[in-house]
């Protein structure tokens, strides 16, 4: 029989050790993936992981079930990561926005069509590393939305709840994250296409 969230929550709140082990089994890989992508090292990601579940353990009795447990955990993890990065409010961090015109408009500059590359060119470990690095290089406010929405598969609403944003803001940030990533990755894929003699 599949346990509901409400049933699991009841067991967690009565400090049932099996329930806590179930909870860790279910959510720790996702929290670690988020932490690893937000932080600069595996050690920092592990600290965020442990801090997240320690905080959840302390706060579980005040959790009212207004969001999913997973969404609540992501929120704790994100806040823990931002505190460790000394960025309690990622919104205020000043990061050069390479696509931004002086009046705030986003303008794509990479205009080579690298979709001509054969699929096998996208299936290498080097490409995987490039994709991960490009996410790490995103401005924080875009990175967190992109990870939760696109890589962790949360809905727009769940992403907004986890990050304390409006749904509209989450949609705008997701779009900008995607545009940033396209811009960051295009020079690499353009080089691959040119070196391989693939014409757009």
């Amino acid at each position: 029989m599949i346990e509901t969230e409400a049933e699991l929550l009841t067991r967690l709140q009565t400090n049932d050790k099996v329930a806590w082990a179930d909870f860790l089994d279910l959510h720790s890989p996702h929290v670690y993936a988020l932490a690893l992508r937000l932080m600069k090292s595996e050690a920092d990601a592990e600290d965020v992981l442990q801090e997240t579940f320690a905080s959840a353990y302390k706060a579980i009795n005040s959790f009212e079930g207004r969001s999913k447990l997973g969404t609540w955990l992501y929120r704790i993890a994100y806040n823990a990561a931002m505190m460790r990065l000394r960025r309690p409010d990622a919104e205020t961090v000043s990061i050069e926005d390479t696509m931004m015109a002086e009046d705030g408009r986003l303008i794509p500059k990479q205009l080579f069509d690298w979709c001509c590359l054969p699929e096998k060119e996208f299936e290498t470990d080097e490409v995987t590393d490039k994709l991960e690095q490009a996410v790490r290089d995103l401005p924080d406010k875009y990175k967190s939305v992109f990870i939760l929405r696109e890589l962790e598969g949360l809905s727009t609403r769940e992403t907004a709840v986890a990050l304390n944003l409006t749904e509209g803001a989450a949609k705008v940030r997701l779009h900008r994250a995607r545009l940033h990533l396209r811009e960051q990755l295009s020079p690499y894929f353009t080089d691959l296409a040119e070196q391989g003699g693939y014409n757009a």
């Binding site: 890989p29 205009l111 979709c115 995987t128 994709l131 992109f146 696109e150 890589l151 990533l181 990755l185």
Partner: peptide, 20 residues
Amino acid sequence: RVVVDTLNKTILLYRDLPQP
């Protein structure tokens, strides 16, 4: 057209990215 195609490809590449 290039922006749309490469943006779409970017999204698809991330959807196939393995979870750490």
